[in-house]
Amino acid sequence: MVTVLTIYGLLAVGLVVSLVKSKEKTMKAFMIARKSFFKTAPSILVVLGIVGLTLGILTPETISKLVGAEAGIMATLIAALLGAITLIPSLVAFPLAGSLLRSGATVMTISAFVTSLVMVGFVTAPMEIKELGKKFTLLRNALGLLAALLIAFVMGVLL
């Protein structure tokens, strides 16, 4: 809700300022927006479909079964992988991570899950490629996964 209000608020301010200053440039902005929206639309649909598949199959219960069952390096790796391929809103992800932590998962596993969840976006890759290119997407996500594992290791040692 806050998100929607923020975006529409920003847009309203921007549009008013733009219209006051120049009608032509505002029209140009509309043209650009329409063009890039239709160009991106197919990859948005793909992202939607994959989000549905991952969340429909990997429900929070399934994830907690996979991550909570065993401790050790394997659990951490699985957690990082699950974090990378799922796209869970933070309002669902953090309570899930919290309950896993209380039910016996290690800090390393939980931070691997949380960090790769936010750093790696397998599901959103089609959109990222469209906007920023294949190489950028591949590099950013691969390095993100690596960073998530390193961060998890450091946190597991420190906490």
């Binding site: 975006i7 733009s18 440039k25 505002t26 140009k28 902005a29 509309f30 650009i32």
Partner: peptide
């Protein structure tokens, strides 16, 4: 959710590109 959020986002982007 996306139908609600994406159109204004693309418009904002258009404004950025134009201005």
């Amino acid at each position: 959710e996306m139908v609600l959020i994406l159109p204004p986002v693309f418009l904002l982007m258009g404004l950025i590109e134009a201005w």
